[in-house]
Simulated scan of single mutants.
Amino acid sequence: MGIGNLIWTYDTLNSGIKIFIAVISVAFVFGIGYLISKGTEWIKYLLLILFIMGLIGLPYIIINLKNEPIVGVINIVQTVLQIWTLVLLFVIPKDKKIEL
């Protein structure tokens, strides 16, 4: 969703530093996904902390929904997917290895 958002608002990437920050942000999200797929236990707590900090941006999402409806909808879908990810990470127990 974030890559789609970047493509939709490509005109905001008008300097090298903004492009660098966008690439680092996408790489960070992929890194979190990789660590989750490997079963790293502490990453779910980091994701929870980052999500809580991101809730500060809810008024910005509402402004985006009014000014740029597509970007606002993408932001809302991202937030819902993050909530669902956190629910899955904390509710579904980690698979235990069966010893033979």
Rank of each mutant, 00 (worst) to 15 (best):
residue 81 L to T: 01
residue 57 G to W: 10
residue 5 N to D: 10
residue 6 L to R: 09
residue 72 G to I: 00
residue 70 I to Y: 05
residue 74 I to A: 02
residue 75 N to I: 00
residue 35 L to T: 08
residue 23 V to L: 14
residue 62 I to A: 12
residue 83 I to N: 05
residue 97 K to A: 06
residue 15 S to V: 06
residue 75 N to V: 00
residue 44 K to C: 12
residue 50 L to W: 04
residue 75 N to M: 01
residue 86 L to Q: 08
residue 40 T to Y: 15
residue 12 T to D: 09
residue 90 F to M: 06
residue 38 K to T: 09
residue 53 M to E: 10
residue 55 L to K: 03
residue 35 L to N: 04
residue 81 L to M: 12
residue 19 I to V: 15
residue 65 L to W: 00
residue 58 L to R: 03
residue 42 W to C: 07
residue 76 I to F: 05
residue 99 E to P: 02
residue 92 I to A: 03
residue 90 F to L: 05
residue 48 L to S: 10
residue 73 V to P: 01
residue 3 I to M: 09
residue 24 I to R: 01
residue 7 I to F: 12
residue 21 I to M: 05
residue 38 K to D: 09
residue 75 N to W: 00
residue 93 P to D: 01
residue 87 V to W: 09
residue 9 T to E: 08
residue 88 L to H: 12
residue 82 Q to D: 02
residue 84 W to F: 10
residue 11 D to N: 07
residue 57 G to S: 13
residue 95 D to C: 02
residue 17 I to F: 13
residue 57 G to K: 07
residue 82 Q to Y: 01
residue 97 K to Q: 06
residue 95 D to N: 15
residue 93 P to E: 04
residue 99 E to V: 06
residue 64 N to M: 14
residue 42 W to N: 13
residue 48 L to D: 12
residue 45 Y to S: 11
residue 64 N to I: 03
residue 57 G to P: 04
residue 65 L to V: 03
residue 44 K to M: 11
residue 66 K to Q: 05
residue 35 L to Y: 11
residue 64 N to C: 10
residue 59 P to H: 09
residue 3 I to A: 11
residue 29 V to F: 10
residue 35 L to I: 02
residue 9 T to G: 11
residue 3 I to K: 03
residue 10 Y to R: 14
residue 52 I to S: 05
residue 17 I to A: 09
residue 86 L to Y: 08
residue 99 E to K: 02
residue 58 L to T: 14
residue 100 L to H: 06
residue 64 N to E: 15
residue 10 Y to H: 13
residue 91 V to D: 04
residue 18 K to L: 09
residue 38 K to L: 15
residue 5 N to T: 10
residue 66 K to Y: 01
residue 80 V to F: 08
residue 17 I to G: 06
residue 83 I to T: 10
residue 91 V to L: 05
residue 9 T to M: 15
residue 88 L to V: 05
residue 30 F to N: 10
residue 57 G to C: 03
residue 4 G to K: 00
residue 25 S to P: 09
residue 46 L to G: 14
residue 48 L to N: 06
residue 4 G to Y: 12
residue 47 L to N: 11
residue 62 I to W: 12
residue 98 I to L: 13
residue 73 V to L: 06
residue 26 V to R: 00
residue 79 T to Y: 03
residue 77 V to T: 04
residue 26 V to N: 10
residue 74 I to E: 01
residue 22 A to F: 00
residue 29 V to G: 08
residue 53 M to S: 13
residue 93 P to Y: 05
residue 44 K to I: 10
residue 79 T to W: 04
residue 37 S to A: 06
residue 59 P to Q: 14
residue 10 Y to M: 13
residue 33 G to M: 08
residue 30 F to E: 11
residue 40 T to C: 07
residue 53 M to H: 10
residue 91 V to W: 00
residue 70 I to H: 04
residue 49 I to A: 15
residue 68 E to R: 02
residue 8 W to I: 14
residue 64 N to P: 05
residue 36 I to K: 00
residue 41 E to M: 08
residue 83 I to C: 14
residue 27 A to C: 09
residue 15 S to N: 15
residue 35 L to E: 07
residue 85 T to F: 00
residue 17 I to C: 05
residue 8 W to E: 15
